[in-house]
Amino acid sequence: MSIVSGGMAGITFVRHLSGKMMPEKVYRVLVVWALFLFLWEGSLYAGIFKSMLLAPPTAVLEKTFYFLEKGYLQINIAASLSRFLAGFAIAIIVAVPSGIAFGLSRGLYEWLSPVLNFIRMIPPPAMLPFVIILLGIGETPAVFVIAIGCFFPVFMNTMRGVREVETIHVEVVQTMGGGRADLLRHVIIPSAMPTILTGVRIGFGIGWLVLVCAEVVAADSGLGFMIEGARLLLETPTVFVGMATICVLGLTMDILLKRVEKFFILRNGGGYLNYREG
């Protein structure tokens, strides 16, 4: 309780000292968070909620430091991240080329898209039990299911991006005597890039969701496993530690992906960005 209120006073004091050093936006976010945590802690202190159902922020903080010290949190973060990145990478490596192929070939799209659309509608966690039977318990089913979750958004967006390439750009390259490789490298990939990257970001969101699903259902490590294990032991603070970690990691990766998106688009002339902002 006192930590939170002290923190709030501290923020205001630092703000007062630094004058305009701290941007208004940051200050606001900090104050809202401090107020929220204060109310949360206070409601438990006053006995409005049971502490078994809603762990106080101070207990969560204490637990976080304890886990960091013991290395338990780091192990689970590493397990979750490696699983996620493996699935994400596989999905992108498979989805972008196949998306380009489907975008370029009308026949491929007409024959195969109904079947793919059906598979797309099956939630990846539903496949998990079947994949476990096929591939055995371990890392592979989780990675496979995450890859499936990431695959479709990237695939669909790549296909859409390739279809929306301006015919006139294609014709220019053909008139200049460019072959198919030139077309792919100079026209199709650059103009489809913004759409592909949007797909990557959507795929990231779905993959992150599926990662947690897979870990809650069937895993012996990772943040989802940590949450579910803590729930079984009624260790409510640990549940919150896991959720907060997932939140922070998700936010960080989302910001990173936004940076990557910006970098790639700027490198390709920034036409899309200008269009978006102007």
């Binding site: 159902l53 947690v212 989802g224 949450i227 729930r231 409510t236 939140c247 989302d254």
Partner: peptide, 15 residues
């Protein structure tokens, strides 16, 4: 928004 809904599952079962 960033916390995937399944991560709330354990908490929701507790509640």
């Amino acid at each position: 928004r960033v916390i995937p809904a399944p991560a709330w599952l354990s908490l929701s079962i507790l509640w």
